[in-house]
Structures are given as structure tokens and as C-alpha cells.
Design a protein around this nucleic acid. Structure first.
Lengths: 210, 210
DNA sequence: GTCTATATCAGGATAGAC
DNA sequence: GTCTATCCTGATATAGAC
């Protein structure tokens, strides 16, 4: 996906990356469709036509932004799966890595969160669907290993549990701000505490609902 | 907000409601900006110009959709707060009511979830911000009462806990489908089980992270 | 209540000069 | 690498006939 034309190796196309970062900020903030190429150009201090010297289209821009981010993220998940950690520690690590991505790649995560459904309607972005399936596979593996090892409750619907984890982790991008009252590591820790132990005081609450 | 012109009282303007329901479905599925008035007209079997006999603008449509839904939802929250239930039961009830809204008002919830940030940039939709604040107040009250009553852990950051609950509950609209493998009540129950008791087997897990 | 016809504008993209 | 100028399309909205 989207190899840069003339991509040497190291500190190349800084201007290109600069423009991509500006575009990413706008896409994340206002949405892909709501961001015009003129918005991007304005924010970059150039005119809209000039953008087309660097990129084919607005779509190409968001494509590069998302694909390179996902490559990095899924590389980290693969490392965790391949590691020697015990199942619970792997799960914790995956959560931490995800909050880390929110901290270091806000815009990319936000774009993926908010625009994936729309972008998936284009053939060009089919790989986003692949990534979704891959992500589900990662979390389900981690959860199942946890159950098998006796570290996680065996009465849970893992598919639902996976969704709750995924959703709660990623949606944090909508409110997390770097430099805020809590670091992303603190947030990950609190989140894990809730996820693993629950918020109630009794260990197994005889729930009144139902 | 948006009183229907000529709004008698009971089974009035069916056509209007029909059109609104069609629009809601499209807004929820494709997003507000990505849905054209022609899309709405096509789906309704009329031409785009004819829509303007019923509504001022596309904005008016989404306005009516959201404001009437929110009125209903917050009425339910108010009932819970005013009820005689114990704090834990109130919290559970609030979660159940929310999943109920996802079941009965998918489109409205999805639109609010996906479009609120964008719509809030218009003065006309400032009331959505009000509703957000009100919602935060509801959940924080429920949580604080739970802690005070000794039913919830007192070492939690309630602001974070509130966000986790809110996010996980509402984001379920993105994957929940009525008529699927699990009813919304089952989902609410599983979710409460995770939220209250956690997913780990040990009651207080000595987490290895950090 | 719907249609025809159309005004108006904004957005993505292109060509070629500098 | 950026600018000028401009094309083309599609989108919201309007006016008035039926």
C-alpha cells in the first residue's frame, strides 16, 4: 500500500510527511469528508493546487496515514503474541500498547475510529477490513489463552468481552489529551484494574438485575 | 427545539415522521455529511425538491431526530435518579435503560455518537453539549452514591470510570444488531457482570503491570 | 404533497506558468 | 515546489406549476 514515489531510505521527503501530519490533524478533528483540500492547503500555507504535486488525491493522503500507522501497531501486537509472557501479562501488555498508540498517534487512531466505516466502502481501503479481522483474532487469542490458563473467568462470552475491551480502549482517543491530568499509562492501569477486578466491592456481586 | 408547524396532538404528520425515520436510517448508516438530500428523497420515493415542503433544511431534519430522542432518554434517567432503588440497582438500571435505547433507537443513538462533535460546531446544536454535561452529571451521581453506600470501590477515579461506562455502553451501537445472537438485555447483563466483578478469576488480582 | 427546472455554491482535481 | 486559473461535478436550496 502506497509506497512513496522516490522513497530512498532515511530522512527523505520531510515536506511530504509534514503535509501528511497536517492533514492527519484535520482529518482527525473534523472528519475526512468535512476536511477540504483547501483546508489542508491553508493549514500548510500553500494553495490547494500545490498539494497535487505531492499527492494524487485526498484519498491517497488518508491512505498513507492509516496504512503506515497500522503496520506499526500490528507489529507490536505480533511481538506480544510471540513473547514469553504469561497470558494475563500479555493481555495487560496489549492494553498498554494500545493506550500507547493513542498517546503517540492520536490522529491516526481517531481517523481509523471515525472514518473506517466510510472508507471501507471503497475497494482501495479493503485492507482496513483485514486489519479489523486481524485485531479481533489477536484479542480473542489473548482472552482464550487467559481462560485456558485459569487466569480469566470461564463463564464469559469472549466475543462480547473482546468488543468491550476493543471499544473502551480505542474510544478513549475521543477524550484523552496528552498533557492532561493523567498520563496514558495511568489510564491504562486504571482501565486494567476495572477490567480485571470490576468496580464493585463484593468479589462476586449477586446482581439484582434480571 | 423544533416544534412541528401545525402540530396538533396525536397521530398527526405521519408522512413527516416517515421521512424523518428514513433520514435517520441514512444519517446513522452513512453519516450526516455523507447523506445527500437526494439520497433521502430517493429512499422516500420522491424528488429532492419535495423534501423542502416538509422541512426547512437537512439540518432541521437531524435536529428533530436528535432532540426528540434525547428528551425521552433523559426523562428515563431522571426517573431512575428520583426512584427509591439502592445505589447499585440504580446504576444497573441506568445501564439497562441505555442498552434499551440502543435497541429501540439505534439510528438516533448512532447519529448522536457519530455526528455530535461535528454538529456542535453549529450554534443551533448547542443543546447537544448541554445533554453531554447532563449525562456526565447523571453517571457521576450514580457512581458517587455507590461509593458512599460502600457498594463500589473507593479507590477508583470516578471521572475515568464514568468515561469507561459511557463509552462502552454507547459504542455498542456500532455492532449491536437487533435480532442477533444476543438480546440487548443479555448484553447489558454480561456488561454489568464485567463492570462490577471484572474478568479475572482472582478477586483482587496483583497486576503485574506498572 | 409532489414535480420540473434551475440558481448558486463549494469541493476535487488539472494544466501550465514561474 | 508553489501559484494562477479554471474545469467539472455534485450538493443544498428555491420558485412555481400541477
Amino acid at each position: 500500500m502506497s509506497a512513496q514515489p522516490g522513497g530512498q531510505s532515511d530522512q527523505v521527503n520531510t515536506r511530504r510527511d509534514e503535509l501528511l501530519a497536517i492533514a492527519a490533524g484535520l482529518f482527525a478533528e473534523k472528519g475526512f469528508k468535512n476536511t477540504t483540500v483547501r483546508d489542508i492547503a491553508d493549514a500548510s500555507g500553500i494553495l490547494s493546487g500545490s498539494l497535487y504535486h505531492h499527492f494524487d488525491s485526498k484519498e491517497s493522503m488518508v491512505d498513507e496515514i492509516l496504512s503506515s500507522f497500522q503496520e506499526e501497531l500490528f507489529g507490536q501486537y505480533d511481538e506480544i503474541l510471540a513473547s514469553e509472557l504469561d497470558p494475563l501479562a500479555k493481555l495487560e501488555r496489549a492494553v498498554v500498547v494500545s493506550f500507547d498508540a493513542i498517546d503517540k498517534h492520536r490522529d491516526e487512531v481517531a481517523i481509523f475510529q471515525n472514518e473506517a466505516a466510510y472508507l471501507l466502502t471503497f475497494d482501495r481501503f479493503a485492507y482496513l477490513g483485514e486489519r479489523n479481522r486481524q485485531s479481533r483474532q489477536v484479542w480473542l487469542t489473548l482472552l482464550q489463552d487467559g481462560v485456558d490458563a485459569g487466569a480469566l473467568r470461564d463463564d464469559l462470552d469472549l466475543e462480547l468481552t473482546y468488543r468491550f475491551i476493543r471499544d473502551t480502549v480505542w474510544v478513549a482517543v475521543s477524550w484523552y489529551r496528552p498533557g492532561g491530568r493523567r498520563t496514558h499509562t495511568e489510564i491504562a492501569k486504571q482501565y486494567l484494574s476495572i477490567l480485571l477486578d470490576g468496580i464493585s466491592t463484593g468479589s462476586i456481586t449477586g446482581s439484582s438485575s434480571g
